[in-house]
């Protein structure tokens, strides 16, 4: 009886968004009288930071400070349509819709500023700090604040824009079955290191080291958040979580947090992550989806590491001590030592 170590790896190619009759999201952008910008969405921030990243995308497109952008996700009944926050589609689909809307709003803003400054709007640019000025001569400038006031009270214009990103429905080619079910794909690879107790069948994950290719990390700290949170969730799926531990008798299923097992802070492996950026041609500022995929590659990587450690191939989740132990016993029965 011993503790045996093993190492396993797994890779994932993850599609951004989905395609069941088309995958659209809409955004509306408008300026208040004082030059704040409201982005109206039906999308939902589940805690993954959608509001932050959407504000960044809108601010970048308009060329205004991020704190001047307010994301309003108040009401799916009255907001512009969104398929939802799932399938790792939020940043890509909604981000693209916001860029389109913000571009339209920006063109109105520059038209108003051009009239105020008596120049051609094509010669104007925003400075990212709340001002609009003539390219090459920053002293000829007007604030976004004053531009918004002028639009509302002098020019009778709404500084606003409409945006939609639609990934159209893709039908399979009858001959080959070929189709385009998603847009860009993100990629990742995880190496897991485990220690298996051959007496108890218990598995301890020592480290999860991953490389992620995410297009562009629009908010690097939040990408890191997703990767670590997802690695933990992958570990949890691999070794702990199940609603039916004694399937098929559902009455034995867990009903609360005491019975539904998850790893706690004391069960953490060492995490190490590398983010690689290769901007996606169709992504908002090159971004791809990096949500759900983070819980994927750790699972087969852990399963492979267990195989490497003790030669047991478990093909159902979670990989409980019982399954590992039965596997070890089966191996021993075949080749007793």
């Amino acid at each position: 009886m011993a503790k045996k170590r093993g190492r396993g790896m797994a890779a994932v190619n993850y599609p951004t968004g989905m395609n069941l009759g088309g995958d659209p999201s809409q955004a509306l952008v408008h300026a208040t009288t004082t030059g704040s910008f409201i982005v109206t969405l039906s999308s939902v921030d589940l805690g993954q930071g959608l509001k932050t990243v959407m504000a960044q995308i809108c601010a970048e497109t308009l060329g205004v400070p991020t704190e001047n952008v307010i994301i309003d996700t108040a009401d799916t009944d009255t907001g512009p349509h969104c398929m939802g926050t799932f399938a790792s589609r939020g940043t890509h689909r909604i981000g693209n819709a916001i860029i389109m809307a913000a571009k339209e709003a920006k063109s109105v803003m520059l038209e108003v500023a051009a009239e105020e400054l008596e120049v051609d709007s094509g010669d104007l640019q925003t400075d990212g700090a709340g001002n609009i000025h003539v390219k090459g001569s920053p002293q000829k400038s007007i604030s976004v604040f004053n531009t918004a006031l002028a639009a509302h009270f002098k020019h009778g214009k709404t500084i606003s824009g409409r945006g939609i990103f639609l990934q159209p429905r893709s039908y399979p080619e009858p001959e080959t079955g070929k189709m385009t079910p998603a847009t860009c794909y993100a990629h990742a690879c995880t190496v897991a290191e485990v220690e298996v107790d051959t007496e108890t069948g218990e598995v301890r994950v020592l480290s999860l080291k991953s490389a992620y290719e995410v297009g562009r990390a629009l908010n690097p700290r939040m990408v890191e958040q997703q990767i670590i949170g997802g690695a933990w969730m992958g570990l949890s799926h691999a070794l702990y979580e199940t609603t039916e531990p004694y399937y098929p008798d559902r009455s034995h299923g867990p009903v609360d947090f005491n019975q539904y097992l998850m790893p706690g802070p004391g069960d953490l492996p060492e995490f190490e992550n590398v983010v690689i950026e290769r901007p996606a041609a169709d992504g908002p500022y090159g971004a791809k989806g990096v949500g759900e995929m983070t819980a994927n590659s750790p699972i087969p990587a852990i399963a492979n590491a267990i195989f490497d450690a003790v030669g047991v191939r478990v093909d159902s989740l979670p990989i409980t001590p019982e399954k590992v132990l039965r596997g070890i016993q089966a191996l021993n029965a075949r080749a007793p030592y």
Partner: peptide, 13 residues
């Protein structure tokens, strides 16, 4: 913090 469950962060942060 071992009595506090978190579903999102992976505890590390």
């Amino acid at each position: 913090i071992s009595g506090n469950i978190c579903r999102c962060t992976g505890y590390e942060p």
